[in-house]
Design a protein around this nucleic acid. Structure first.
Lengths: 179, 179, 179, 179
DNA sequence: TCCTAACCGAGACGGTACGTCGCGTCTTAGG
DNA sequence: CCTAAGACGCGACGTACCGTCTCGGTTAGGA
């Protein structure tokens, strides 16, 4: 590889400054200039690596997301598995007011659906008749709703209730679920 | 009251132009100048009656919402009542791609919670132990999720499934409801 | 005329700030932002009326040029007439170090030739054989040279010498001039 | 002296690319990056040997100037000597549109005065009363004026006329010279 | 022969200014 | 009192160049 290597320090400083400003002021309220200033970096350096403020925000969000906790067991009952996945997610959402950022991003792009996909379907635990898209809506919908609406906290109990609600719904529809 | 009266023609033209541009380009992608141009109206006239672009968007959205269908019966079973309320809502959402507007508004303000509040609680039909906030999340969450995510259509069937899911969940938690 | 009228105050403040910065820092060293700041004006207002920094500089230069002193008599001998025109010009050039600005502008545009054109030729005082372009070079060239080079002052005596030089040259070539 | 020697190929390629771009786009319109690209050279290599774009331009201009034609005889009459110096200069100026470069450089630096200085003064041919600075203005001024203004070609005849004009002027002032 | 200093290309970096765009405010003239 | 027209201050946008700075790789001497 030729040329001066990309500055790792700059990359991290940019992402750190970005997430800081984003959770505080939201996507609209965050200017690239201010990110550059806080990161002690040139604005051009930001645009060299991120084509827009929005994609920087997406990246900053992802980077702030602590590395997935191994996701561990794939073999327990579905309920436990879903909870094991949701809980750390909510824990992170509680730690910082990501709502403003996510709301801004939702206005531009689509969220990623890669989270639950492999989890349930591939293991065949869900009744064959289950509408998978529906399950996603029932699972993610309430969480996003509460996150964006901010009318109630994203507690552990809430996670349990959402998961149980999905399982009850799916079970009710198929009449087969153990849950 | 003296002086020239407010131009009703201008009001309607503004709202019509606004909703048109909003569903096409989203909140961010819509400029007040362009709304004024399309409505053949002065920008100042817009700001005389709406304090900001966002509030204009909210108003334009509300105005485009066909007048509520009387909301009629309050006395049927809860399931029928919820469905009677959701169905016309989804019908309107299917008519036009409101997703982009709503996403933009969510990024700024909070949605209104006035819809379901009177419906269920006041009638005491929900089990006493029910977490009302949770019910709201379970009901609205999936709909917003599908609206904003756009991964599947907001069909009548979807409405039924969401309502049934909420009732199943609530029933499961309280041990009393089978719907 | 409809709409808010252009702010005369802004126009003058912009031109004043511009010429001030231009004579101090030259064309390159003057930023539109700084002009805006000093004039207590928005940068957009500048670009609304001047398409570029260079054209603003040209305008600022012209505006700073005190209104031509009537140019009066057209009937004296050519020598007196040329001197009457050159003197106030040099006086203004001495007042402020326009060299830096002019140098910058010369690098972009062409100077105006409207000054001497009507003066001599139309009065037929110059010998018919005179190469008019040459006369212009002989008259303006030394002045610009001294202005841009800055190696000697633009004195009254210098003006006299340049004019006499031109007349001597032209007389020598034609063998007819009174001078 | 150890280490890899400076690449002569790079030096020449840089100067060639530079003068090419300079006469085409002027000093402002020429970017160091583009010079590097055309010369197939690193930008750092340019800055290792030239401290700034302007000094590179000066060097490129000098390099493009064909080696002085020996300047030969110092013993002829002044008129012949001046013409012998001016003619090749104008010939070069006709070859390429150096005007844009020179204008750019004038805006930054001062031209060199080394050309005519030794020529006349040291030989005592000019009347003692002559203002030497004035002679320089009268000689160079018209040439620069025509070069930068571009209103007429820098012909051989023009050179003759300028020289004669200077001599006439100087002669007229001193009352001794007829040239 | 191989070490090592000075070179070279590539290209990322901090800065600074550019010219544009949109917001929400204002100042006119006119209905 | 309302309206259209449109200029205004503000502030962010994304781009372009400047001159500096690492990198890895190349090319001579001197040991």
């Amino acid at each position: 590889m030729r040329g001066r290597p990309r500055s790792e320090r700059a990359r991290q400083a940019i992402l750190a400054a970005a997430i800081e400003l984003l959770v505080e002021h939201g996507l609209q309220g965050t200017s690239v200039y201010e990110v550059a200033r806080r990161a002690d970096v040139s604005k051009a350096t930001i645009y060299r690596w991120w084509p827009s403020k929005e994609l920087l925000a997406l990246d900053a969000l992802a980077a702030d997301w602590e590395p997935a906790p191994a996701a561990a067991g794939m073999d327990g009952p579905l309920r436990d598995d879903l909870l094991a996945r949701l809980r750390p997610w909510l824990r992170r959402l509680r730690r910082r007011p990501y709502g403003r950022v996510v709301a801004g991003l939702v206005a531009e792009a689509q969220a990623d659906r890669s989270f639950a996909e492999p989890a349930a379907l591939e293991r065949g635990e869900l009744p064959a008749s289950t509408d998978f898209e529906l399950a996603l809506d029932l699972l993610y919908g309430p969480i996003y709703h509460r996150l964006l609406h901010g009318h109630a906290p994203l507690t552990e109990r809430f996670a349990t209730e959402v998961v149980d609600s999905v399982l009850a719904a799916v079970g009710a529809r198929s009449g087969t679920l153990t849950a």
